[in-house]
Write a protein that binds this DNA or RNA. Structure first.
Ligand code: DGT
Ligand code: MG
Length: 449
DNA sequence: GCCGTTTTCGGCCCGACTGTTTTCAGTCG
């Protein structure tokens, strides 16, 4: 049975091949949207299917529902098999090459009859691409550089790695004369768990100094583009970053744009159009008769649209527009709302800090309850605690509690191993003496059900 | 191909940068 990812991959492939084929762009868009929608779906599409409700999935209409049905029933799709015969599947592997899109790919394929990435590289090296219409020596070199960049290109970067990197760049940009503000944008500001690149927005009257400094940052491997409003770079490790510079009086529209997501932006722009306004990163303009509204803050952007400000974390076009319209945006849980940390490891097992250090740090962050859930005895690699050592730990926790008074409540707990036979690591009588017990699996994960 | 309290047909966001081009197409954000 195909899962959502496999279905999504199938529709992305269809979109890619259709685009190379030269199909109506909105049709390819529909397949792409359906694919994205499947990726972000909370439930398996097969469940909708069993209930006969496939068309309730956003972006799925009659035609795509029928294709999902065929894929779930047979595991195959006649439409795609036929399409692959018209447009070789290999061509889709060219799309990740920067500067190559569906139009150029189709032209190169039809002119030279080549389909694999290796053939493309060879053709470019032989100088066979430069004579085609709309192409020249530079575009040929760009393709070769693009192919080379594919191997350098890192996967998406975890937020925890990307955020400090971006803040470091922002720190350097803030030092530049004339820079009023610099903020993380894109998926970084939306706090996605991984980001594809580092997007940064700078407020400054004049952009040239920022652009010059940006492309000369340490460890820049190549400059992908450099203009008066936008520049982008690739670092040696393949990580990409881009910066936009807009004047302070446009910072609101610019930040809304740069924060995205793309789909959220499109929704905002549609709402603007319904009000007779055209929204871009620069401003709102009146569709009839002209006239411009500048927004220095995001609040002004949303206010102009008749919406409350939407937290970046929600800007994914996953229902937040509807919620905003109805004034029913959820109140997000923030770090300051966290009152208890009930899963921690101290240096009693595989943690690095002492319990006192951790309890003090937690108290400093406003946390009211901390539970020490060090590993249990059978997890030897983590220095799991014997019952004897638990007694020491209990005594130490008493001392810590005394020292810290009522600033924080310290609980004596354990992350107890569930062993291969399903039993727990300690006898029930001992578990009953703990304040809290977590049970978890670390070994023998491949047993039959 | 999808979608709809202004539409069941006719729209579907809008602009920057590059390289090629004598005014714009393609790609990308
Ligand atoms: N209006 C509009 N804005 C776009 C479009 N594509 C991208 N943007 C805006 C919103 C994005 O959040 C922002 C940065 O683009 P990115 O490609 O870096 O996307 P994002 O950072 O959201 O995701 P990522 O983790 O980088 O894949 O640019 C578009 O087609 N239209
Ligand atoms: Mg990004």
């Amino acid at each position: 049975m195909m899962n959502n990812r496999q279905l999504a991959d199938t529709f992305t492939l269809i979109a890619n091949l259709l685009e190379i084929k030269g199909e109506i762009i909105y049709k390819t868009l529909a397949y792409r949207k359906a694919s994205e929608s499947l990726m972000g779906l909370g439930r398996e599409a097969s469940e909708y299917w069993k209930e006969g409700k496939l068309e309730e999935i956003p972006g799925v209409g009659k035609a795509i529902a029928e294709k999902i049905d065929e894929l779930l029933t047979t595991g195959k799709l006649e439409f795609l098999e036929k399409l692959k015969k018209e447009v070789p599947e290999d061509l889709a592997t060219w799309l990740p090459v920067p500067t190559l899109g569906p139009k150029k790919i189709a032209m190169i394929w039809k002119t030279h009859g080549i389909t694999t990435l290796a053939e493309l590289e060879a053709a470019a090296k032989e100088g066979k691409l430069r004579d085609m219409p709309g192409m020249g020596a530079k575009s040929e070199t760009a393709i070769l550089e693009g192919i080379a960049s594919l191997s350098r290109r890192s996967a998406r970067i975890p937020l925890g790695t990307a955020y400090p990197l971006a803040m470091e760049i922002i720190g350097q940009l803030l030092n530049i004369k004339g820079v009023v503000d610099a903020q993380p944008a894109g998926s970084l500001r939306r706090m996605r768990s991984t980001v594809g690149d580092l997007d940064i927005l700078v407020a400054a009257k004049d952009s040239s100094a920022v652009m010059e400094a940006f492309v000369k940052l340490p460890r820049v491997n190549r400059v992908l583009g450099k203009g008066p409003t936008k520049s982008s770079i690739e670092f040696n490790d393949g990580v990409r970053a881009q910066v936009w510079v807009h004047p302070p009086e446009k910072f609101g529209t610019a930040l809304a744009y740069a924060t995205g997501s793309k789909d959220h932006n499109v929704r905002l722009r549609e709402i603007a159009l319904a009000k007779g306004l055209s929204l871009s990163e620069h401003s709102f303009t009146k569709v009839k008769g002209g006239g411009e509204i500048l927004c220095a803050t995001e609040e002004q952007v949303y206010e102009t649209l008749g919406l409350p400000w939407v937290p970046p974390e929600l800007r994914e076009d996953r229902g937040e527009i509807q919620a905003a319209k109805a004034n029913k945006l959820p109140k997000l849980i923030e770090v300051k709302n966290i009152k208890a940390d009930l899963q921690t490891h101290s240096n009693y097992s595989d943690g690095k800090l002492t319990m006192l250090e951790m309890a003090q740090a937690a108290a400093k962050r406003g946390i009211k309850v901390i539970a020490f859930t060090d590993h249990s005895v059978s997890l030897g690699v983590t220095n799991g605690l014997s019952i004897e050592r638990h007694k020491e730990q209990a005594a130490e926790i008493k001392k810590i509690q005394k020292k810290l008074g009522d600033t924080i409540t310290v609980l004596h707990a354990s992350e107890v191993e569930i062993k291969a036979d399903g039993t727990l690591d300690y006898p029930d009588e001992f578990l009953a003496s703990l304040d809290l017990v977590l049970a978890s699996l670390h070994t023998s994960l491949r047993q039959p059900r």
